[in-house]
Design a protein around this nucleic acid. Structure first.
Length: 115
DNA sequence: AAATTGACGGTTA
DNA sequence: GTAACCGCCAATT
């Protein structure tokens, strides 16, 4: 018995991509959220990696505040050095270990009228 | 068809 | 704190 969703059909993958971009666009300035939270809200809890894939490869994702998406421990995206500067410019403080202070800046999206 | 690759997450040591 | 795994899954090789 699998406790994770079935493999995405192409149609589901398309809808998932739209949902991800839509959610990212709602992250408030000066706050961050995680790949896992976005995947959960999009209805695919085990697809955190796919959220990262979408933001990395979808043209137009750069127009969104995708710099406000970090991993669960507050680490910024590998190879994207500018992300930290963008966050600091809107007031997000980093800890000595180079991670975002998640206790202070994590924004947890809420389900609205779902199901 | 089989193996590898990641803007990830979790457990263990 | 680090590091080594493991599970997950679409895309790529």
């Amino acid at each position: 018995m699998r406790d994770y969703p079935d493999r995405m059909t192409p149609e589901q993958a398309r809808a998932f991509g739209e949902d991800v971009l839509n959610i990212v666009s709602q992250i408030p300035r000066g706050r961050v959220t995680t790949y896992g939270h976005i995947a959960l809200l999009a209805g695919w809890p085990s697809h955190a990696r796919m959220v990262g894939r979408t933001l990395r490869y979808t043209p137009g994702a750069a127009e969104l505040p995708c710099h406000r998406v970090v991993n669960k421990v507050g680490r910024t995206a590998p190879g994207w050095k500018r992300q930290r500067t963008l966050l600091e410019d809107e007031g997000v403080l980093f800890k000595a270990n180079g991670h975002v202070d998640m206790e202070r800046y994590l924004w947890e999206p809420e389900f609205i009228g779902e199901n």
